[in-house]
């Protein structure tokens, strides 16, 4: 390992009086004084959310309006702070994919526990849970800070889907080679 000795130059007289430094500093601050401010006026101006931002976890539907979650509970198991609670259940009999898959009866995410790690999104085999752009959660009670299923779908909305799993299943069913 090479050692490079760096000689520290002794301070010049001007530097020791500290006055040129003070003047330089004053010039810098004056320059900033006349510069436009960089502050974002928050509630009116919103920050630009970068791609891949991990905000509040939400449930999404596919473009056909079907819920994607099949209540496999992987997210519930993987969640490090145990913020997710899912009650799995049968889908209603009249829905198109009844008897094929399950769906969540209740899906609660306690935002007081959530640490925004994104593991639920990572683990979800159905691409049903996403950490989206929502970053500001507030409420007056603890109960308000628990997002239930309806709220999660409201926050999540619909995301473009690459797979259209249910369409494929339906097509396969119609052509007679399910699975």
């Amino acid at each position: 390992m090479a050692v490079i000795p760096v000689d520290r130059k002794p301070l010049t007289f001007a530097e020791r009086t500290y006055i040129p430094q003070i003047i330089g500093g004053l010039r810098t601050t004056l320059k900033h004084f006349f510069r436009p401010t960089v502050t974002l006026q928050y509630p009116e101006q919103r920050p630009e959310i970068p791609k891949g931002y991990r905000g509040v976890p939400t449930l999404v539907k596919d473009p056909n309006g079907r819920e994607k979650c099949v209540s496999c509970q992987l997210c519930e198991f993987v969640c490090p702070p145990k913020a997710i609670r899912i009650a799995p259940g049968e889908l209603p009999a009249d829905s198109a994919n009844a008897h094929v898959e399950k769906g969540p009866q209740a899906f609660d995410i306690d935002m007081l526990r959530c640490i925004y790690c994104g593991l639920c999104q990572e683990v979800c085999p159905e691409e049903a849970i996403f950490l989206q752009n929502q970053f500001s959660m507030s409420g007056y009670t603890r109960a308000e800070m628990v997002n239930n299923k309806a709220r999660l779908y409201e926050l999540g909305g619909t995301l473009p889907d690459q797979h259209f799993k249910w369409d494929k299943k339906k097509a396969a069913e119609e052509h007679g080679n399910a699975h």
Partner: peptide
Amino acid sequence: KISAWIQGRP
């Protein structure tokens, strides 16, 4: 105000 403007805040 002056401290804010020097630091780029409003």
